[in-house]
Design a protein around this nucleic acid. Structure first.
Length: 294
DNA sequence: GTAGGGTTAG
């Protein structure tokens, strides 16, 4: 845990800097963020909550979750008013540092202040539960949110749950969720199909993966290079070369061009199957493509 | 000038 008491060593304080507008664009690392924080807490009166939230969100983007939590605690002590944005940031930081229970424990204060749950509160909590492999709890929470209409649903919440279910090997439920989404206002998108197709391939359910892939155009969902890559990855892992070849041709016909991942996926699978000559041919094609670009 | 999500290889 980062200790705020060491902040004084990170201060860049002089008279001219103090009068200038705080610039967050210059933050490239945690040291920059702490320097700015040092300047902010020297100001009298203290900057408003939004400015501190801005700094906290920069730390989140830098994945400096424990530092952000320390600063969150520090500004509370300094008397900066804590709003729902700040609390959601702190909850997210706990969830991202495998301390989802701390995130939940913040909800008491959250409700006490009269704040309402929204997608920015619940999606990190759901994600945190899935990441800590607390799958049943995540599913129960999601069901409770839907059943009791605890917050407005959006595509991000569905994204967290589809991802969590797929990674937990529960692709059947992820597909069920896809069907629920089709009937509501948050429609499934390419990314969700890609996640499920990938999950199905990893569970060796290639037929189901192919089925989802086939239904995409009928449902008005565009396929992208990820869609082809995850499916090609699944098919080549299980030596289904005829299908891989067909997909390779199809993607080019659709002007979705194989990228470095497509090439390396197939080359890797060919090598593992002992088809080194074929892998070599593909490598040569790849080199020719690179030469063409140079 | 504020908060939340996700896919492929090695």
């Amino acid at each position: 845990m980062f200790d705020c008491r060491c902040l004084s060593t990170n201060l860049v304080s002089n008279g001219t800097m103090k009068s200038r507008r705080i610039e967050f664009g210059d933050i490239n690392g945690v040291d920059d963020a702490l320097s700015i924080y040092g300047l902010m807490i020297e100001r009298k009166p203290l900057p408003n909550t939004r400015l501190f939230n801005n700094l906290l969100s920069r730390l989140v983007k830098l994945k400096q979750y424990t530092v952000a939590i320390s600063l969150f605690r520090d500004i509370s002590i300094l008397g900066v008013s804590i709003d729902n944005y700040a609390m959601n940031i702190a909850i997210n930081c706990y969830c991202n540092s495998h301390r989802v229970d701390f995130g939940f424990s913040m909800l008491a204060a959250f409700f006490k202040r009269g704040y309402m749950l929204d997608a920015a509160t619940v999606s990190p909590l759901l994600k945190g539960l899935f990441q800590e492999n607390r799958i049943a709890e995540a599913q129960n929470l999601f069901r409770k949110i839907v059943r009791e209409e605890l917050c407005e649903m959006n595509n991000i919440i569905f994204g967290v749950v589809v991802d969590g279910l797929c990674k937990a090997g529960n692709t059947a439920m992820a597909i069920q969720l896809l069907r629920v989404m089709e009937k509501g206002s948050c429609r499934p998108d390419t990314h969700k199909y890609n996640m499920i197709i990938d999950g199905l391939c990893k569970d060796k359910l290639l037929d189901s993966a192919m089925k989802l892939f086939d239904e995409m155009p009928h449902k008005g969902i565009d396929r992208d290079v990820f869609t082809y890559n995850v499916l090609i990855n699944g098919l080549s892992t299980f030596g289904q070369w005829k299908e891989v070849k067909a997909l390779w041709k199809e993607m080019i016909d659709c002007k979705i061009y194989p990228n470095v991942i497509t090439f390396t996926t197939v080359i890797d699978a060919l090598c593992k199957e002992g088809l080194v000559d074929k892998a070599h041919d593909l490598l040569n094609i790849m080199i020719q493509k690179i030469m063409f670009l140079l």
